[in-house]
Each structure stands twice: as structure tokens, then as C-alpha cells.
Design a protein around this nucleic acid. Structure first.
Lengths: 139, 139
DNA sequence: CTATACTATTGACAAAATGCATATAGTTGA
DNA sequence: TCAACTATATGCATTTTGTCAATAGTATAG
């Protein structure tokens, strides 16, 4: 339970709060809904299998994105009264959501290429900076 | 070439304003500085070669990120009085910045993998959703 | 019955990042 | 002088995210 602020202790001045992955949250949610209906908590639970670290991601974020996407007409929801425990809002992807997901995946392809370029340039540069020789301090 | 602009014209309600490329702005700037000293406007000019679309990116963002990174001790700057025109603030990467860049590149590797996974899952799923065969009127 | 924990969703407010406009200023050309 | 281009910086509104807390049903321990 106390895992929520563990990263605060680490002294990474340049990594203020660690943003980033959020860009992929909506595509991931939509992709999960493409596989089948699900409710928010369920989707939140599955996020780690999509590369997210839930230690850094409050579940309220997931619910918010779901409501927003519903407002945009990408997904729809209904209450599942049959299940036990608190009521679940079950989401289903809509045709507009499928189209939107396609667009996002297109962009994700560009992003992957851009990241690959960055990594490539970095690998080339870092060798020049750190010196051409294989001699480096003890590992 | 122009496959990713014209977003303003298209009515994409789900794409309100920005995209996530900002996540890569700091790593890109740091990487450019790894190649050598440069001033803000210069770096801003080079962004397209790093996959950024400057139509969507105000130069003030670049200056702001540079100042922030200087505050963090990742880079340092000095005024170049010798150059023509308005004064330039020339930036240079510092050891802390090189270390930080290494960390970010590490994360970028993870991001690349995550994006690749997303694209892979999508490709598998979309076939099921759109039908297994090219010939299928209804299901 | 009460306290606690877990599931599940929502809302409020603060903090951070960004968009957009604008201020300042030197240089060049008309 | 005016306009255009280079160059940097700031202010304000908007958008997005972080963090907390509220609400609620079920199950379990005491």
C-alpha cells in the first residue's frame, strides 16, 4: 500500500515526477477494449502487461480517460448490476473508437521510428564522447 | 513527407491539440548538445531532423526546457557576444547531463519496446475484429 | 455489530506542462 | 522609418496530471 510514493525518495533531480508513458495510456485502454468489454478496475489491473508501472499510476487516471473517451464517442458504458461488490461500469469500444485506435497506432508507428532514431544517434555519439578506446574505468 | 500535418483541418475530435512528442523534447535537446555546443534557436531549427514537427512546437518551449535543464545542472550556458545579430545564449552539456541522457535513453529503449508490443497486439487483434477472411459480409 | 481490507468509481483541488501572444533587441534590406 | 528575420524571454490561459478523499458494496476477523 505504501508503494505509491517510493520514487520520491530516490534522488533523481532530473526526473521530477516521471511523466511519459501517459501518451500510451489511451491507446492501451482502447486496445484492451478491442479485445473485449471490461470495467475500469479490470483495465487498471491489466496495465502492467502493457508495459505500465502501476506504482506510478493512480487508478483515477484510468477512470478519467475512460470517461473522456466516452464523451468523445469512442467507447460506451453500462452498469453491470449482476456482479458482486460495488457496481461496475463496463465499457465497450465503438466504431469511432476503432477508427481512432487505428489513427493512434499510425502515430505510434511514427513515434517508434523517432525513438529508434534517437537511440541510434545516441549510440553513435556516446562513443565519440567517451573516447574511441575500449578502456573504461572498472565497469 | 507531409503525411503528418493538416491536423488542424481534419476534424479529429479525439485529437484535441497536442501529441506526446514533447516527452522526447528534452532527450533530443540533450542529444544535440552532446554533438556540440549550440544556442536555442539553432536547436529549435534542428528539431525537424529529430522527427519533430515545428509547426506544432513553439520555440518558447525550447527556451523554457533549456533554462529548466540548466537549473537542474544538466547543461550550462554563456552569452556569445561575438556573433552578429541579437545575443545568443550558447549551451553546453555537463557531466550530469550526459548521465541524465544515458538514463533517458535507457527509458527510451523501454518505450520503444512498449510501443512495439502495442503495435504487435493491435495487428493481431484488428484481424479478429475485422474478420479473419477478406470475404465476409456479416458475422 | 464493528473494524478492517479489498474491490470499484468519482470528484475536488493543486501542480505541472503547454499554447499562444507579446515584449525586447540587433541586423539587413527597401 | 518600416518590415522581416534572428534570438531570447515572460505572462496568462488552458490542458493534463498528481494526489487525496469521499462513497459504497462485500467479505473476514474479532
Amino acid at each position: 500500500m505504501g508503494h505509491r510514493q517510493a520514487w520520491r525518495e530516490k534522488k533523481c533531480p532530473h526526473r521530477r515526477k516521471r511523466r511519459g508513458m501517459r501518451v500510451f495510456l489511451r491507446p492501451s485502454l482502447l486496445l484492451m477494449l478491442l479485445e473485449g468489454e471490461a470495467h475500469g478496475y479490470n483495465l487498471y489491473d491489466q496495465l502492467p502487461t502493457y508495459g505500465f508501472n502501476c506504482d506510478r499510476l493512480d487508478s483515477s487516471l484510468v477512470y478519467r480517460h475512460l470517461r473522456d473517451m466516452e464523451d468523445l464517442g469512442l467507447i460506451e458504458s453500462h452498469w453491470d448490476e449482476d456482479s458482486m461488490g460495488p457496481r461496475r461500469r463496463v465499457y465497450r469500444i465503438l466504431p469511432a473508437g476503432i477508427q481512432c485506435l487505428a489513427d493512434w497506432m499510425d502515430e505510434l508507428g511514427d513515434i517508434r521510428d523517432q525513438v529508434a532514431d534517437l537511440l541510434r544517434v545516441y549510440q553513435l555519439q556516446i562513443r565519440e564522447v567517451e573516447g574511441p578506446g575500449p578502456e573504461k574505468g572498472d565497469g
